[in-house]
């Protein structure tokens, strides 16, 4: 294993210390490892809290700031945070209007957020939760843990964060988050594995002539191993199931998000985006907004994911609203 770290055990703490030092104007880091917006709590504003394992940077800590998250709880690498973190986050951002937990659909995240919500409610804070489950690579049925939460999470955090910033109440913000969840679909792929620092070796083996379709964001294997293909072929493998799933149809307005998994350069993501534009045009799907870059990653994994969100006027307006965080900012 070759990584720019001091020791696996100190990785998350040291990264948080660096982040806090870099963004003094935006965030502060409180015990036990919670990234909180510098001006939290804001009176009368719904607090928006998310969290998950580390290793997906900039998600979620990079999205704490004006117009997005009020707090983020980073766990160990690829491991959900513990309830103590979400409880501390919830208390730190509660301005009296309640707190929304945005939870990615993983068994551990669900259970730890659930425990924290129970504890926070016990302390008199109103908590609502929305689970993001947008990965079409996973079959949703009563007999599985359901779809994973992936790229759609980034879009939900931006749009919902903007609504909370405007002063919308908890029930409205929650309903909006559910609307984003209902209209967003994603799928990812990997060219290489990633190495969890504490494990010291790649999570899975993959040949130079192979790719993994339907990969999760933790290096958990996808559903299918295929022969290496061109960017256009890969884009088709990802986007066709996404388009067919919702389904996205002619006349729909969408936000298209091409995300890098951590080890794929932007130049390649633009090649993918170019094909996304062609395929959407062929189906009459209108791309109104886009996001291209590495925002929800799996350490150094090479690969990408594609996310489509069917927009309505309000979602578009909230997407355009000002955001000022470490990783996303516009006026």
């Amino acid at each position: 294993m070759k990584k720019l770290i001091n020791a696996p055990d100190s990785l998350v703490d040291e990264a948080l210390a660096g982040m806090a030092a870099a963004h003094l104007d935006l965030i502060r880091v409180i015990e036990p490892n919670v990234i909180v917006r510098a001006d939290a709590p804001r009176k009368g504003k719904v607090g928006v809290v998310s969290g998950g394992g580390s290793g997906h940077e900039p998600m979620h800590g990079g999205f704490v700031g004006l117009g997005m998250l009020d707090a983020a709880c980073p766990g160990a690498v690829f491991t959900s945070p513990v309830p103590d973190q979400m409880l501390a986050a919830t208390k730190a951002v509660d301005g009296g209007a309640g707190v929304l937990h945005i939870v990615k659909n993983y068994t551990g995240d669900i259970m730890n957020f659930e425990l924290a919500a129970e504890l926070a409610q016990g302390e008199g804070i109103e908590v609502a939760s929305v689970v993001i489950a947008d990965d079409v690579a996973v079959q949703d049925s009563l007999y599985t843990a359901g779809r994973r939460g992936v790229g759609g999470t980034v879009l939900a955090e931006k749009i919902v964060g903007a609504a909370a910033e405007e002063g919308q109440d908890l029930a409205t913000v929650k309903a909006l988050c559910e609307r984003v969840q209902a209209n967003v679909r994603s799928m990812g792929m990997a060219l290489t594995s990633c190495t969890v620092p504490a494990a010291g070796k790649p999570t899975f083996e993959i040949g130079d002539d192979e790719l993994e379709i339907g990969i999760g964001i933790h290096g958990e294997p996808g559903r299918e191993r295929r022969a290496m293909a061109t960017a256009d072929e890969v884009t088709e493998m990802l986007l066709t199931p996404i388009l067919d799933d919702l389904p996205f149809s002619s006349g729909d307005r969408v936000l298209a998000f091409v995300n890098g998994m951590g080890g794929t350069p932007l130049i390649e993501l633009y090649v993918v985006y170019r094909k996304v534009v062609q395929m959407c045009a062929d189906r009459g799907v209108r791309i109104e907004r886009n996001l291209i870059g590495s925002y929800i990653t799996s350490l150094e994994m090479a690969g990408c994911s594609i996310t489509l969100l069917k927009l309505d006027d309000e979602m578009t307006r909230l997407w355009d609203a000002p955001v000022h965080t470490a990783a996303l900012r516009w006026q």
């Binding site: 766990g75 959900s80 513990v82 309830p83 103590d84 259970m111 730890n112 425990l115």
Partner: peptide
């Protein structure tokens, strides 16, 4: 365990 493990194993 709940405070230190995380993941699914911690709560379970």
């Amino acid at each position: 365990l709940i405070s230190t493990v995380g993941g699914a194993s911690g709560p379970l």
